[in-house]
């Protein structure tokens, strides 16, 4: 396999994992209107949960249960769902702004725990030597990477199929009804709070699943994999692609990831060595600009949700 193809496989794998997170955010924001300011936290919880469940036992660590990868995947979804449930139960009966603030806190706190709870997470050194699923079946790294891309895409398609079904179901209609008009939904005897909690928990579980897929891919995780900027990247992917559209989210993931890696490569080539540290700030400002400008100029993104009614306020 040539270098370019190998890079493409790597690029597509990461972009697909991000696309799965975006799907989780899409159910929360795109379909239900719930603002999650700590996406990276749920992703990290999934990644660490998987690492702790599947990792090899070590004297210095509490975790390392050596479980099969599928158990790790399920555990990751469950752990992230649980975190989502706690935040949602506390904040969702209140004004929606509180959910934004609380999820922002989750994002920061998870990073703190990852850094400081060395007995569980390996601290700043992270967890390493984690098993990659079906690794032994392949005789070369390239073959494994290619397999893993297919594996991630299959999981992504499964999540997509699940969400597409959910969104079309009566429950999915209810989600949009609540997003558009809470009072009307309540007057029809629906319970918006409970439906919001369900939607938030499902979204969190999907983000956790994506975290587990990342762990299985790289076999090594540390707090620097889960820096706060990831939350903004995921948001940019969703809104550029078009929130409320599953296809839009996936396209947005690839577009933004291309812009991010492309601008990174470009800047590292062009910027003089003493300004390298500064050049990464340019990338982040770019993400911020993309978010704000999209909200201002094209709130529906590239492929927005189709309008369900003929006229909107």
């Amino acid at each position: 396999m040539t270098g370019l193809l190998a890079y493409f496989v790597f690029f597509a794998t990461i972009a697909t994992i991000y696309a799965i997170i975006v799907m989780g955010l899409n159910i929360q924001w795109g379909f239900t209107g719930l603002f999650n300011a700590g996406v990276v936290g749920f992703y990290a919880i999934g990644a660490y949960a998987c690492a702790i469940l599947t990792g090899p036992a070590r004297d210095t660590l509490i975790g390392g249960f050596g479980m099969p990868f599928l158990v790790g995947l399920a555990g990751a979804a469950l752990a992230a769902a649980l975190a989502g449930l706690v935040v949602a139960l506390i904040t969702l009966r209140l004004s929606e702004e509180y959910l934004a603030i609380a999820t922002f806190g989750i994002g920061l706190t998870v990073q703190l725990v990852a850094l400081n709870a060395a007995g569980l997470t390996g601290g700043a050194n992270g967890l390493y030597g984690l098993p990659r699923p079906f690794w032994s079946l392949f005789d070369s790294v390239q073959a494994f990477n290619l397999f893993y891309l297919v594996f991630v895409v299959v999981i992504g398609l499964l999540v997509w199929a699940l969400l597409a079904r959910l969104v079309r179901s009566p429950w999915g209609r209810l989600l949009r009804a609540i997003r558009e008009d809470d009072v009307a939904a309540r007057s029809l005897g629906k319970n918006p709070v409970s439906v919001r909690v369900q939607s938030f928990v499902i979204g969190s579980a999907i983000m956790g699943t994506a975290g587990a897929l990342y762990t299985g891919y790289v076999g090594f995780i540390s707090p620097i994999d889960f820096i706060p900027i990831l939350t903004f990247q995921i948001w940019a992917m969703l809104i550029v692609g078009g929130s409320g559209s599953l296809l839009g989210g996936v396209i947005g993931s690839f577009v933004i990831w291309l812009i991010w890696t492309g601008s990174g490569t470009l800047l590292s080539r062009l910027a003089p060595p003493d300004l390298q540290a500064q050049s990464s700030a340019v990338q982040v400002v770019l993400i911020g600009l993309i978010i704000v400008l999209t909200i201002l100029i094209r709130p529906r993104g590239l492929i927005g949700e189709k309008s369900a009614v003929s006229s909107k306020k």
């Binding site: 934004a100 903004f232 948001w235 982040v284 400002v285 911020g288 978010i291 201002l296 709130p299």
Partner: peptide
């Protein structure tokens, strides 16, 4: 109005990294 919150989130990023 939660979109305003979202926009402020992006603005924060721009200001901090500028």
């Amino acid at each position: 109005h939660i979109t305003l919150v979202f926009a402020s989130f992006g603005v924060a990023l721009i200001v901090r990294y500028s």
